[in-house]
């Protein structure tokens, strides 16, 4: 009960607000309005001038400067990237050149070796051909010699045979017959 009474009293006090003031709501005390409005206008004018003369140009310039810096930095970064790309390109070019050079040298070396080889082969071929020709000549000589010997032996044998058989054979006809046989 006591608390209820206390709360009732509190509500009453809250409702009545500033006890002892001339007005319950200071907001509706019109005698102070002029004062408040005057100082409000002074305050607003001061803030307005501080903002428009000092703060806003400053912040605007800082923001513009920052934008400029960012743009410049981005441009620089772009440039560096371009440079890096160029360097890479140059490197690749150098690499390609070196590779081409190496290929050329290899080809040259291969060609040289081939030439030497060809020369050596040709020489060897020529030697072999010469030797073959010589050998063939010798073989031909030997064959000719052998043929002659065969003709001789055949003539002699034929003369002997004819003589043994009792005939007399002149040398001319025996030779002719042997030759005819050898040819046939």
């Amino acid at each position: 009960m006591a608390t209820e009474a206390a709360q009732d009293a509190a509500a009453g006090a809250a409702a009545h607000g500033a006890a002892g003031q001339s007005s319950g709501m200071p907001q509706l005390d019109f005698s102070t309005w002029g004062n408040q409005i005057f100082w409000l206008l002074v305050t607003l004018v001061v803030i307005y001038f501080v903002l428009s003369r000092v703060v806003m140009p400053r912040i605007a310039s800082v923001l513009a400067e920052r934008n400029g810096t960012i743009t410049n930095d981005l441009a620089a970064a772009e440039e560096l990237k371009q440079k890096a790309l160029e360097a890479e390109k140059a490197y690749n070019e150098a690499l390609a050149t070196a590779r081409a050079e190496a290929a050329k040298i290899v080809a040259q070396a291969r060609a040289d070796i081939q030439k030497d080889l060809d020369k050596a082969t040709a020489k060897a071929d020529a030697e072999i051909a010469a030797k073959t020709a010589e050998s063939e000549k010798k073989i031909a000589e030997i064959r000719a010699g052998a043929m002659e010997s065969v003709t001789e032996v055949a003539k002699d044998t034929a003369k002997e045979l004819v003589a043994v058989l009792g005939g007399k054979a002149d040398a001319k006809s025996v030779t002719a017959a042997v030759n005819a046989l050898l040819k046939g």
Partner: peptide
């Protein structure tokens, strides 16, 4: 809502 609050205040104090 603030208007109704204002009316309450006016009734109470003004």
């Amino acid at each position: 809502g603030i208007f109704s609050f204002l009316i309450a205040l006016l009734l109470m104090f003004a």
